[in-house]
Amino acid sequence: MAQPWLSDDQQRIWRNYLTLGNRLQVAMNRQLQERCGLSLADYEVLVALSERGSVRVLELAAALDWEQSRLSHQLRRMRARDLIERRDSEDDRRGATIEIAAAGRDALASAAPDHVNLVRSVLFDGMTVEQLRGFDEVIEAALDRLAG
């Protein structure tokens, strides 16, 4: 029979993990807002679009692992700021494609170096190759269990 509670070590690690995730999200959001006027959600969408080019809204939602309603609201805000462009699909009147606009490309180019430096300094600097490999294995295993 499975133990009903986490062990003391598991509880400490779990809470540290949650704290890390929350603090990193706050730090990334603050940095992006202060330096580029972007939210972390803006940044995530811009990165996904820069990697994929023009995509359908449903494909973008799947790539980001977001609910369609959340993405629709986010895209509306970004479109109002000219960060993205929405085009009605020629194949399907109900569908639309989204692509990054020139202002979005500029914002992403401005934001990315500082964002990468923050992530690197918080998570990866000082890690040995073995620690990095172990960290990756833990994350991959958890993601596999969630997908399975």
Results as ranks from 00 to 15, higher is better:
29 N>Y: 09
58 L>H: 02
93 R>D: 14
126 G>L: 03
113 P>D: 09
30 R>G: 04
47 V>N: 06
10 Q>D: 08
56 R>A: 12
17 Y>E: 14
134 G>N: 11
125 D>R: 06
128 T>A: 10
129 V>N: 03
57 V>E: 13
115 H>F: 12
30 R>Q: 02
116 V>F: 12
18 L>W: 08
30 R>C: 03
120 R>P: 03
47 V>P: 07
144 D>C: 02
28 M>E: 13
53 G>Y: 07
110 S>P: 00
98 I>N: 06
90 E>S: 12
65 D>K: 12
26 V>H: 09
137 E>L: 08
123 L>I: 04
65 D>G: 14
148 G>I: 04
129 V>Q: 14
11 Q>N: 13
102 A>G: 02
112 A>Q: 13
134 G>M: 05
138 V>L: 15
39 S>F: 03
88 D>N: 12
96 A>Q: 12
92 D>A: 04
94 R>N: 05
55 V>C: 06
59 E>Y: 03
132 L>K: 07
108 L>Y: 09
130 E>F: 03
85 E>V: 05
58 L>T: 13
55 V>A: 12
86 R>Q: 11
76 R>T: 11
55 V>E: 11
101 A>C: 05
6 L>K: 03
77 R>C: 01
111 A>I: 05
13 I>R: 07
119 V>N: 01
84 I>M: 00
13 I>F: 07
